[in-house]
Design a protein around this nucleic acid. Sequence first.
DNA 1: TGGATGACTTGCA
DNA 2: GTGCAAGCCATCC
Length: 106
Amino acid sequence: MSLDKPTNTFAEIYEIVRKIPLGKVSTYGRIAAILGSTSGARMVGYALNHAHVDSSIPAHRVVNRNGQLTGKMHFHPPQLMQQLLENEGFIIENDQIVNFKENLWP
DNA sequence: TGGATGACTTGCA
DNA sequence: GTGCAAGCCATCC
């Protein structure tokens, strides 16, 4: 595999996440569905785990289907994810986006 | 080279 | 209404 860029599947995920506009969020399952694999949500999460190398990827805008910040622990510091979301107008409560459905990116 | 793991989701018992 | 198991694909040891 080339080390210059990720595989096509990962590249697709990165592209989609990058398209998420400011003030909007998306879910792992949503992105996985776009890729054609509803069950591939795990892949999306794993891809974002490696996406931190590219600061242009707003990984903090991707949450699980409940709007919960399951991946915040992979940020440094972990509260950075919540802080970024709050900075974009989101309301975080108990590591969960309160107005998540209202700002869900189609 | 092969097996195990992971920021998830969905369906069935 | 709750709990368990299977599926997807790439990376790591």
